[in-house]
């Protein structure tokens, strides 16, 4: 039997092939470690200043009725204290006959009680007011109940929006945040939205501003190349209800800090 001669060159080639295939690839760091994340999120949060801004707006007299939010929303007043109330939103509010999110409820109050103009749902004043009211529930647990038939319908709509594949990339919220959760996308972990709603509104370090959760939904949709839903629309309120319900039981700590 004739065999090929094993020259030095072939031995060298063989060694290289062994290194390439037999030796496992070097372990690379997948993403940011928890310790590093804790150091990044440590320190003061600029969102705290938005909370104080919200407090000023809450106490400011505005509108034709010459009242401020604080005139009614005291412990003994007709509006009752707002401590802990944000933990139950979005919910069905009897006097409005609709499912309301915090933002739409604030505007309803402004139009009907204060006789003032609505706040623009996208702009800073609304964000500061929501941050302040949510922070009044700090320490309480998220407690969204779905009992009224309109709430059930909104939850169902939210679930559809969450799971529906839309847009250029054929993505849905569910794909990144449920199915592919815990995997890394360019060194950043894809999170399961278990406790997310409990710390929103958040200061986004990338943008240098605080945003409400619905604004973040819009920014997410833009990144995923889906058409953006309008804030305050039934689809967005349903989506907020669905995502907030996932956080039931988590302690509220607003404002938080995320990338």
């Amino acid at each position: 039997m004739k065999y090929p001669k094993l020259t030095l060159g072939m031995i060298f080639l063989g060694v290289l092939i062994i290194i390439a295939f037999v030796v496992p690839p070097l372990p690379a760091q997948k993403g940011i470690s928890k310790k590093d994340l804790a150091q990044t999120k440590g320190g003061l949060n600029p969102g705290e200043l938005d909370k104080e801004g919200g407090k000023d707006l809450f106490n400011k007299v505005d509108g034709k009725a010459k009242k401020s939010c604080a005139s009614c929303h005291t412990k003994s007043g007709p509006g009752k204290s707002l401590k802990g109330k944000a933990a139950t939103y979005p919910k069905y509010v009897g006097m409005t006959k609709k499912v309301q999110s915090l933002q739409t409820m604030i505007n309803y109050c402004r139009v009907n009680a204060l006789k003032a103009k609505k706040y623009n749902l996208k702009k800073d004043k609304m964000m500061q007011m929501v941050t302040y009211i949510k922070s009044l529930s700090n320490g309480k647990r998220v407690n969204v109940k779905v009992k009224h038939p309109k709430e059930k319908a909104a939850l169902k709509l939210g679930e559809i929006v969450f799971k529906q594949r839309r847009g250029q990339r054929n993505l849905s919220c569910e794909i990144c945040h449920v199915k592919e959760a815990k995997k890394y996308l360019r060194m950043q972990i894809l999170k399961k939205l278990k406790g997310a709603s409990a710390h929103w509104p958040d200061y986004r370090t990338k943008k240098g501003k605080t945003f409400t959760i619905e604004r973040r939904f819009q920014q997410c949709m833009k990144n995923a190349r889906m058409s953006i839903l309008k804030i305050g629309s039934p689809a967005m309120i349903g989506l907020e209800l669905y995502v907030t319900k996932l956080a039931n039981g988590k302690k509220i700590k607003a404002p938080g800090m995320v990338r």
Binding site: Q29, G31, I32, S33, K35, D36, L37, Q39, T40, G42, G43, M187, Q188, T205, K206, G208, R259
Partner: peptide, 15 residues
């Protein structure tokens, strides 16, 4: 004390 990987280059904590 600095992070090994910075999540966001605009906010790198340095101690």
């Amino acid at each position: 004390r600095v992070p090994t990987i910075a999540e966001n280059g605009a906010i790198v904590p340095v101690q």
